[in-house]
């Protein structure tokens, strides 16, 4: 384990990198489609968030942490959780100030909906976007946090110690080397 995959992206094969590059946009488009069509067809903010996050994690796998975090907005993933939470709370709480129960969505069932293309503009969509942000932010933020901790650890221990192979950007966690503890 001289070359930890996190620091030398070239260790992944050409095949993986090409596929990752090719799949990147389609995955994100699928995620957005699942998000906005969630009311007429299967899909919702959560599954959209998972699909989107997996798409970006694939970039982590193929090109390493540094390159992946250069993608727009990926660096702010951790903040996305709280932005999402605030939007969700806003959607939930607004009806209370209008004298309706929490989580009342507008426009109500049966009323006419504003269309943008084929997208129906309803507050439930905003709520799902918030969920989407939270899921994306949670997955990516968590991975970034662990990757960052490991990078700091390596720096601290010096280059010889490769550190524990619990590297999220390496994709797999190699055996936790617990054998040494048994006598």
């Amino acid at each position: 384990m001289k070359n930890a995959p996190a620091r030398t992206p070239e260790i992944t094969s050409v095949l993986v990198r090409t596929i990752a590059k090719l799949l990147f946009l389609p995955i994100l488009v699928t995620a957005v489609a699942m998000l906005i069509k969630g009311y007429a067809q299967p899909g919702d903010g959560f599954s959209a968030g998972v699909v989107g996050a997996l798409g970006i994690l694939l970039q982590y796998l193929a090109f390493g942490r540094r390159t992946a975090e250069r993608l727009p907005l990926v660096g702010f993933a951790g903040k996305g959780v709280f932005a999402g939470l605030l939007i969700a709370l806003l959607v939930a709480a607004t009806p209370v100030f209008l004298g309706q129960p929490v989580f009342t969505h507008y426009p109500p069932a049966g009323a006419s909906v504003i269309y943008v293309g084929t997208i129906e503009l309803i507050t439930a969509l905003l709520f799902d976007t918030a969920v989407f942000l939270m899921v994306m932010g949670f997955v990516l933020g968590g991975v970034q946090m662990i990757a960052q901790t490991i990078a700091d650890e390596d720096e601290y221990r010096g280059p010889e110690a490769t550190g524990p192979e619990f590297d999220a950007s390496a994709g797999t966690d190699v055996e936790p080397s617990s054998g040494g503890g048994r006598r």
Binding site: M145, I146, T149, P164, F166, P176, S178, G180, G181, R182
Partner: peptide
């Protein structure tokens, strides 16, 4: 993350 924290300080997961 908790077990990672333990692993860092003890170098074991046992």
């Amino acid at each position: 993350s908790l077990i990672y924290r333990l692993y860092v300080s003890h170098d074991t997961m046992d």
